[in-house]
Each structure stands twice: as C-alpha cells, then as structure tokens.
Amino acid sequence: MTSETKHITLQAQDLSVGYFNKKAKKAVAETIDFSFSEGELIGLVGANGIGKSTLLRTLAGMQPRLSGAILVNEKPLEDYSTLALANQISVVLTEPPASKNLTVLELISLGRQPYTSWMGTLSEKDKTAVQNALQATETQSMAHRKCFELSDGQMQRVAIARALAQDTPIILLDEPTTHLDLYHRAYILKLLKKLASENKKTILFSTHEIDLAIQLSDTMLVMTGNANYFDTPCNLIEAGHFDALFPKDTIHFDKNTGRFTVRK
C-alpha cells in the first residue's frame, strides 16, 4: 500500500481534561491537539502531575472531558457505547489485576470479552486471537502460570498481551515501563514499536523514559503545563520543546545527544 494519507484513528481538538469539582471545572491540562494515524507509536511525556494519566483516562472514556472534542475513527467519543468503544480502544493501566489468582491464559482470554457471548466461552476465532497475543508478546511459556508468580517485566508483557487479544485499532498504555530495569524497558518499547508497525495499530504510551521514547516513537506528545506539543521527535528537539519539560536549574536537554544531562 502506498497511500500517502494514512488513516487517522484518534484525534483531539482543543481538548481540555481534568475533574468536575462541586460543579466547578478543575482543568489539569488544556488546549491539547493531535491526530494519531494507524501504525503509529506515540510517546507521551511530561513531568509528574502534568495530566498524562488524566489524558489517557479521558481518551479511554473512563472520565468525561471538560471541553473540546475527541474523535475515535472520525466519530465523536461520546457516540460510542461502552461496548462499541471496547472494540476500538484497549488499555494497559498502572494498576495490577485485582485478582492475582488468574492464570496468564485466563487473564489474556478476558481480553476477548467484548466479542464473546453472555457465557464468555471462547470461539475458535477468540482462541486464535489469544494465541496470537501470546506469540507476539513471547508469553507462551508462562501461559499456565498464575499471575502472582510473575515478575514485573513478565506481568507487563501479559498486560500488553491482554490488550492485544482485545484486538482494537487503538491501544493506550499508562507508564508501561515503570518498575522495570533498563533491558525490560527497552524490550517493552521495542515490542510496542513492532506491534504498531506490523499490526497497523495506533499505540499511545506515557513514559518517563524520554531518551528511549525519542529513539523509538514515530511522534511524541510533550505536555509542559503551559502548552502541549505534538510532532516528530526530531522536530520537537529542533524546536527546543523538551527543554520546557522541567525547570532548567537542575537538568537541561542536550540537542546533540538527544538526552537530559544534570547540571553540575
């Protein structure tokens, strides 16, 4: 396929996210604009408390937006029923599964819920999707282990496999690399990159690994509090937007190496 205009899957226009507080709106982040296409891996970076998780929850339909518009496949988010949205967006949250007694296979199979009958039994198609998810995340060997036996890195791969089994064009991940060592952080992000390009998915992940995200993301959304920038990592570096992420007295962004260095 050589279509120049890629299909746009997720779009935000002048979006403002936050909380409703006793009828008053409390905005956490405002004027967010972006449009994500299929096959795109998007890194979402920003300081703690800047509204990354709030934005992800709003995009996933878990909390209402304050103003602006969110378009999922060019249709307003609020036009989707809970079930219809589950066919479009899957999530990987920071919270672990409530029950650690689930086996890996059971947990991943739960991702098929939007497609199964009222009994929740898996059809052949569901089983294939689960097997594909196991394969893509290299979790076949632990399929019959219980979740409480897994390491953080393995658990994260299983959580991603569940989202894959849900088979949605859009996947949102909230800090998938926290608690992981350098190898596993790189492993997870490379996996996301592969899934985005090979399976034509739109994958948005929030992270504090800015240098890894710069190396692997197709585009990035930088939230600084005053303004939010959406562009390719190169353009963002050129424009000096990463410098606006943190107060400059402690760390600064080195354009040449593409990483932050501590001021001595």
């Binding site: 339909g61 949250l93 919270e95 029950s99 947990l107 739960l110 819920q113 009994m119 849900q166």
Partner: peptide
C-alpha cells in the same frame, strides 16, 4: 450465573472491566 461473565471481568478491577465494555 447470568452475571458470571461480568464477574470474570471484575477480577481485573473496575477500570479494566469498563474498558472491556462492562456496565
């Protein structure tokens, strides 16, 4: 018994359950 599928989804926590289409 009719709620068993929803109960299974709740094992992942409310947010995950909701993201899989559960009311």
């Amino acid at each position: 018994v009719a709620s068993s599928k929803s109960l299974n989804a709740l094992l992942l926590g409310e947010n995950y359950a909701k993201s899989m289409g559960l009311h």
